[in-house]
Design a protein around this nucleic acid. Sequence first.
DNA 1: GTCTATACATGGATAGAC
DNA 2: GTCTATCCATGTATAGAC
Lengths: 186, 186
Amino acid sequence: MGAQTDTRSRIQEVAITLFTEQGYEATSLREIAEALGVTKAALYYHFRTKEDIVASLIEDRIEALDELIAWAGRRPRTAETRAELIRRYGALMTKGRAHEVMHFMDRNKTALQGHAKVDLMRERMGELMQALYDPDDPLPVKLKRSMALFAMHAAWFFIRDESTTEAERAAAGLQVALELADGSGG
Amino acid sequence: MGAQTDTRSRIQEVAITLFTEQGYEATSLREIAEALGVTKAALYYHFRTKEDIVASLIEDRIEALDELIAWAGRRPRTAETRAELIRRYGALMTKGRAHEVMHFMDRNKTALQGHAKVDLMRERMGELMQALYDPDDPLPVKLKRSMALFAMHAAWFFIRDESTTEAERAAAGLQVALELADGSGG
DNA sequence: GTCTATACATGGATAGAC
DNA sequence: GTCTATCCATGTATAGAC
């Protein structure tokens, strides 16, 4: 704890910001180090690799998703389950740096491909998406429900307006997600 | 024409495939060259830089978007205009490698940031999105309409099922997009 | 139109001093 | 816990022969 923990979380904060704004590959460890006023080698004391910085940002999220998927598996695939799943997913996203992490991952899809923890996270997101529909649902239904989870992040991805609050974004995302997951036809 | 043109378009085809699957930065020119059975230097005969390959893939798209935006600007912002805009956008996407290009761009957001033509393309997509709503629309409406254009690509991004045809994807995307752009409230 | 060879820059990662 | 110095791999791009 103390100075070490503080430096560690400062590294995470600077890293996710630069990774999202400039890109994961475009951001060198030297750049992160300089932004913090330390050197490259100092980073290597706190994280063994560049990948480890990413892993540290998402590993707690994966656990939360696991629980949510397990919960969904124990319930019937009804409209109520879908709505509740979406609400719970939304609640998860209010904690920590959840939206920043999703934004970072969205903007660096290929660059993060192959990273163990990221691949796991993507897999979990896919499972969660598939918990929202049946394999024999018509394509438009599959599409709408697939987009439901995405809708909960879209207010951060699409709406650039600085004056919009986090709460407003969350509420709008939730509303649109629930609409998308509700219907059974066109 | 002839051999030169053929090689040029073969480069484009291999490039967009590798860029999408492995990532733009992760794909070296040597790799593209080897996949074609030529050398790195041969690529430089057809394209001055790596960026130029990307530019060649999207520059015709930008023109098409310009026309669509101009058309929307001449019409009142009604539900009918929105629906027609979406249909026209969908028609554009049936031509050439449109969906591949969008998929490529989606998966390489940060890596492509700063490329002149890509930035222009993104700008145009933003303008098109904003043609679907008014600045004073409530947030959920903005969000839904922003997602409409995205829906037309989502059938390619989200639905992995190989047995789904292009026509089915297009039809589903169009249907969902029209629904998202239609409503005025929650 | 395609080749070989190479210049040049950058980035991740490590060794070892303090 | 942070530093300097350095290794090593890779990638873009160019020069010039065939």
